[in-house]
Structure formats: structure tokens, C-alpha cells
Computed example of a mutant assay.
Amino acid sequence: MAKVQTAKISADILQITSKITISKWPPKSDFPADILKFMKKNATEKQALKLMKTNKYFIREKCPFIYFDDYFVLTQNFVHQTHSTPKAMYYRIEELPNNLGICGTLHIQHENLLSHFISKCVMFDLKCLNFNWTKNVKISYNDFKVLTSSGRLEKLDLGPTIVTSKNGEIIPYESLLNHTPALRRLCLEYNHYLKFSQKFIEKICASNLEKFEVFKLPINFKREALMSYMAKKKPNLRVLLYFK
């Protein structure tokens, strides 16, 4: 079994919960008290996190997830843990427990382990998410929503990533931005499957973005219209366009 890091998150949880008086009795509810007690006692790690957000009665004395790392990489065959130990570690996906808590920065170099890795995690609180591949790779919309579920992502490098629904439909950029309200920097590679719609440009101008980068633009891309519109609507946004 992989030796993941528990001390940091445990100390944080202890510091928070030590200031909270947790009732021994369920709160008043339309559900019978016995059912609420059963829910608290038998909830899975993911269910426990959701319950803890609804009422402090459900707060557990023991943290329901294991802190893994704040900077790691998914390669084709390994989960690479880089910062939390004196020596960088490589784990096979089957070595990891099923109740990981993930925060900080995640670099995804290959899609091979992504869905399996997500299934191992009960909590994501990422600040930086980078898709570091050189080809058009499809990931599921559900996986994207889980990775950005905290709503606190500040940097997103999509590269040439294509996000698709269960039916295989391509999810437009403007829909992805609905899940990243705290985003400050957005990087992507121009993709002919994903046009820069007016809705996408308007969403950027209405967002908290401070930097917007686009790579591998075709020579005939009409940058003047884009730059002119953004200069009027969001003059403090730093826009960097890179052509092939």
C-alpha cells in the first residue's frame, strides 16, 4: 500500500473541528433521528463529505479522506508524487487507497489513468490543472466537473483537450468556464473542432480572468476583431496569441 501523507490535513482538520461543538443528537429534520444516525455511521467517504457540508452533526472525528500531495503528475503508467516526500515517488494506480484528498497542482500527461485516478479520490481542491499532452485527447465532461468541483481553480491549461458528453458531443469552452468561477489564467491550443464563439468571448470578458493565452493559431485567424472587442470589454485582461 502506498504511504500517502496524512499529517498535514489531519492537523488542519483537528484545528478546525476543535473549535466546533458537535451535537451528539441529530438535528431536527423530516427524517427520523435513527435514519440520520445511520447515515452518519455508515456513509462512505464521499457521502460523508457531502453530509459534513449540510450540518455539523455529521462532522467526523477522523478525517474521511487521506491527504495525498499538493503537486503531482499523472503519466501513462504512474502517479508521480513530487513535493510531499524527501524523495520523489512513483505509484501504480492499484497501490493507492480509495479515499484520497487532492489539492494544489495536477499535471496530466496521459489520459490512460485519469478516470481510474479520479475514482480513487473523494475530494478535489485544485488551484492549478494542466493537461500536458501534444495531441487532441478527449476526456469526459463528468471527469472535468469532478476535477474542478471545488470551484477554486485559478489556472487551467487545457492544451488541445476536447471535453465530451456521454453522447460524444463536444462541450464548448463557455460551458467549461461555468465550472471555474475563480479562474485567473486560461491557456489552450487552437482547435478547429472548438471555435471561439461569441458566447465564449463574452464569458471571458465577464470573468475574473487576468491572463488568456492561445497557442497554435492559424495564420488566417482574425485577431484584430478579437483584440478590439476584448480591449473594449475587458481592458485589463492580458491576451497572448501565438501563431503557427
Rank of each mutant, 00 (worst) to 15 (best):
C63G: 02
N167A: 07
N112P: 04
L186C: 09
T54W: 12
V214H: 09
Q47K: 08
A231L: 08
I35A: 03
Q198G: 00
C63E: 07
I93P: 06
K222H: 12
L96I: 06
L74T: 09
K155P: 01
C128H: 02
Y229F: 13
I16K: 12
K56Y: 10
K37R: 11
F215C: 04
L237P: 01
L194M: 08
F31R: 02
S150D: 14
C121G: 13
M123L: 11
D69I: 01
A11H: 09
M39D: 01
N191Y: 10
Q15W: 00
E213H: 15
A33P: 01
L96V: 00
S149M: 01
C128G: 00
I118G: 10
M123C: 13
F215R: 13
D69Y: 09
S150E: 14
P97Y: 14
F131R: 08
Q5C: 07
N98D: 15
D70G: 14
C187I: 01
N220I: 04
A43H: 01
H110F: 02
N112F: 15
N42P: 00
E174P: 05
A43C: 01
N112K: 08
L176M: 07
W133K: 10
I9C: 09
I22L: 06
I35K: 03
N236W: 06
W133M: 14
Y141A: 04
I22P: 04
E189D: 13
L113W: 12
K24C: 09
E224V: 03
A48V: 06
E154S: 12
H116A: 06
E210Y: 01
E189T: 11
